[in-house]
């Protein structure tokens, strides 16, 4: 598709009852999604939950077993080539040829998208600069670090100026600095260029920082959806953990804290409860003072997306990883 034939940025992603079966296994078990143009949607779940299968179906790499999906206004089954012209994708594995240079990768990608001549040259330089690979552009990819590969992957996904970007676990295995740089670029693409971003991740922090909305998938089902703030608000309960100054007073501390909420996991030598309501912390501190129970440490934990996952699935995300 020629670049002059740009697709509209007015349509996002619509998914109705999407299913994918692999023999007896239902990897995606009938999901519904609506993602608006320009939105960053975080798709969160443990390994094997169905995230990548969903991405493969939405990017036309895998035909669905049932259901319907439109991406950028095009049907993923009937209008595969139009979908592909509208999207960019950086899939789970940074699929690069170790023996080609970064610049050669971009040249190949641009050429296959029908971009030629001066336009191609300028585009390649612009993208290399944007992902910080200008000086490394003529080095073979086998010499790149994990972060550099991911950045090149992103540049390749952007080569034909897509309206929708699929990023399948884009920061897995990256160091914190590379991860933060990638987050900044993804956020910029959505905010400044209006690109819709469908981001799968198993990192709660990533979804929390980047996504406008989050969908949590487990065993092929979407178990929760909303903004990170809304989802955490649904859980609503903070946790307070207290370490007594005198270890012998752990029993008395337990009795006191149970008046404010239900017991929850705590470090050795500490006791913790999930508070019954908001604003209970001052009451806890007053009670400790009144009963002359000296605390060495008081910690208040706000609810996280992991708490949301726990509430919706009965497991922590980490535990789900092991079971997956």
């Amino acid at each position: 598709m020629a670049r002059s034939d740009k697709v509209s940025r007015d349509a996002g992603i619509e998914v109705i009852g999407l299913v994918r079966r692999f023999k007896d296994v239902e990897a995606v078990a009938g999901i519904d999604l609506t993602i608006s143009p320009g939105e960053i949607y975080g798709f969160l779940g443990p390994n094997g939950a169905g995230k990548s299968t969903t991405v493969h179906m939405l990017t036309t790499l895998l035909p669905p077993s049932a259901g319907r999906a439109t991406v950028a206004g095009f049907d993923v089954v009937k209008q595969g080539s139009k979908v592909r012209a509208s999207i960019g994708a950086a899939l789970q594995e940074a699929a690069l040829d170790p023996f080609l240079t970064g610049r050669e990768h971009l040249r190949l990608g641009a050429s296959l998208h029908g971009i030629r001549g001066t336009e191609r040259k300028q585009l390649i330089e612009r993208l290399l600069e944007r992902v910080g690979l200008t000086t490394a552009g003529d080095r073979k990819v086998r010499t790149y670090s994990g972060g550099m590969k991911r950045r090149l992957d992103l540049a390749l996904a952007l080569i034909h100026d897509p309206s929708i970007l699929f990023l399948d676990e884009p920061t897995t295995g990256l160091d914190p600095q590379s991860r933060s740089a990638l987050w900044t670029e993804v956020a910029r693409l959505a905010r400044e260029e209006g690109v819709t971003v469908f981001l799968t991740t198993q990192y709660l922090e990533e979804a929390d920082v980047l996504a406008d909305r989050v969908g949590i998938i487990d065993h092929g089902h979407i178990v929760a959806e909303g903004t990170p703030g809304d989802l955490k608000a649904q859980i609503g309960k903070s946790t307070v953990e207290v370490v007594p100054e005198n270890h012998d007073e752990l029993g008395r501390l337990r009795e006191l804290l149970l008046r404010f909420g239900e017991e929850t996991a705590a470090r050795p030598g500490a006791f913790a409860v999930q508070l019954n309501g908001k604003g209970e912390l001052p009451s806890v501190i007053r009670a400790l003072d009144t009963e002359s129970l000296r605390a060495a440490e008081i910690n208040l934990h706000q609810p996280t997306l992991d708490d949301v996952f726990l509430a919706k699935t009965g497991r922590t995300l980490e535990g789900a990883e092991e079971q997956a």
Binding site: L61, A85, A89, L91, E93, A95, G109
Partner: peptide, 16 residues
Amino acid sequence: RDVDTGFLNRLALTPV
């Protein structure tokens, strides 16, 4: 190797 590394998928996403 292209199949294994996902490079074939990358090509499949282009109009090739």
